[in-house]
Design a protein around this nucleic acid. Structure first.
Lengths: 109, 109
DNA sequence: TTATAATATTGCAATATTACGATTAATAAA
DNA sequence: TTTATTAATCGTAATATTGCAATATTATAA
């Protein structure tokens, strides 16, 4: 099939999966790292930094934007990207809680 | 195309992406939560708990196993799954470090 | 040995993702 | 206005993922 049966899972499970998908491609990881590295908004030299075509980068940016993890502000002919701090925090909280499940767990094997 | 160009990214970027993929499907999130919830090894009643076919669950388990996040111990005709604590810790460390990049970041917008 | 039970594997269909050339849209500069 | 510059969108090809029926495998029970 290829169609995820979202309806049989809880909202939290779907949210975790959707957010994890953002990081499930090295290009998107690299894009986010670049934005953080700049320690400010980055005015789209991402295509030069990462070795992918402009259309491809634009597509990855769109996905990150649609998840709300980054924002794009138009500055003349270029676009400046930055992290959406609130959304990033919420994402971190959700995923960290999921990761920390092991703290309640008995080491059985 | 559809082929991720792993070679143009760093090892860390690829590792983050590969691990994130484990959580990028709600069924795998649900499986991991079930294993944690049992607070021990869980002997494959996952198919009943989650509403997917046996073959599908088996496939998701295989992916989690191949990443090393879970282990399967054969007990008679059934298999008991549990979290690989060391691998889980390492995963947590890598992804948490990635998520905490925002701590060094100036809130610019 | 012959069932029975539990899980893995295979094969396939359908959908999703990745990548990029070409085009379009919008702004800035000449 | 014309010409760059920059980024988004469209269209398309290739690969990946998801899901399941059918089958195979493995170990126990009869």
């Amino acid at each position: 099939m290829g169609l995820t049966k979202s309806e049989i899972f809880t909202d939290t499970q779907n949210q975790i999966a959707t957010l994890a998908k953002a990081f499930a491609h090295p290009a998107r990881v690299a894009i986010l790292q670049q934005i953080f590295k700049a320690n400010a908004c980055i005015c789209g030299d991402l295509v030069d930094e990462i070795g992918l075509a402009q259309a491809t980068i634009s597509q990855h940016l769109k996905e990150l934007k649609s998840l709300g993890l980054i924002r794009g502000k138009i500055e003349g002919t270029s676009v400046c990207y930055c992290i959406n701090q609130e959304k990033w925090s919420k994402m971190k909280q959700l995923l960290t809680a999921f990761f920390n499940q092991d703290l309640n767990n008995i080491n059985c094997c």
